[in-house]
């Protein structure tokens, strides 16, 4: 059987989760290896959530929040943006491939964008293969 990646997507309640809903009600197709975790705001997402997801066996992680200016809590997504930018720096310095972690802003009406992004993420992660802290040791 072909290997399927495990992908965790953190969605904020007000925009991105709504986007996923819109994609669902419009019956848009996107890969089933995406697992959505709903949080109240992207500002709730601790960078450690992403690292913990990798530690527990996720092959790719995505964070999705409201567009700038649209945050239900005024500036939660700006906080998220800073934290995730810092996290990206940590990940790239540590040599974890860029195609394992994504950050994007998806609104509740953008069902199509949600479905397309999920397809893109899924394909990229699939290309990279399973994630492990010990890449070489597992490969050989």
């Amino acid at each position: 059987m072909e290997w399927e990646p495990k992908i965790i997507v953190f969605c904020c309640n007000w925009c991105s989760y709504g986007g996923a809903d819109t994609a669902g009600t419009a019956r848009m197709q996107y890969p089933p290896n995406v697992r959505v975790i709903r949080v109240m705001c992207s500002g709730r997402i601790n960078p450690l959530f992403i690292l913990k997801a990798f530690d527990e066996g996720a092959d790719g992680v995505m964070v999705a929040g409201c567009h700038f200016g649209d945050c239900h809590y005024d500036r939660g997504n700006f906080a998220c943006d800073r934290r995730m930018t810092a996290l990206k720096t940590v990940l790239t310095t540590m040599g974890i491939e860029e195609g394992r972690f994504f950050l994007d802003w998806i609104s509740a009406s953008e069902g199509e964008k949600f479905a397309n992004t999920m397809t893109m993420v899924s394909e990229k992660v699939k290309e990279l293969g399973p994630f492990s802290w010990r890449q070489k040791a597992e490969a050989g």
């Binding site: 500002g43 700038f68 500036r75 700006f78 906080a79 943006d81 800073r82 934290r83 930018t85 810092a86």
Partner: peptide, 12 residues
């Protein structure tokens, strides 16, 4: 410190 700031400026 950069992670203690919550302003309305995108980081990049």
């Amino acid at each position: 410190p950069p992670l203690s700031v919550v302003d309305k400026e995108p980081s990049e």
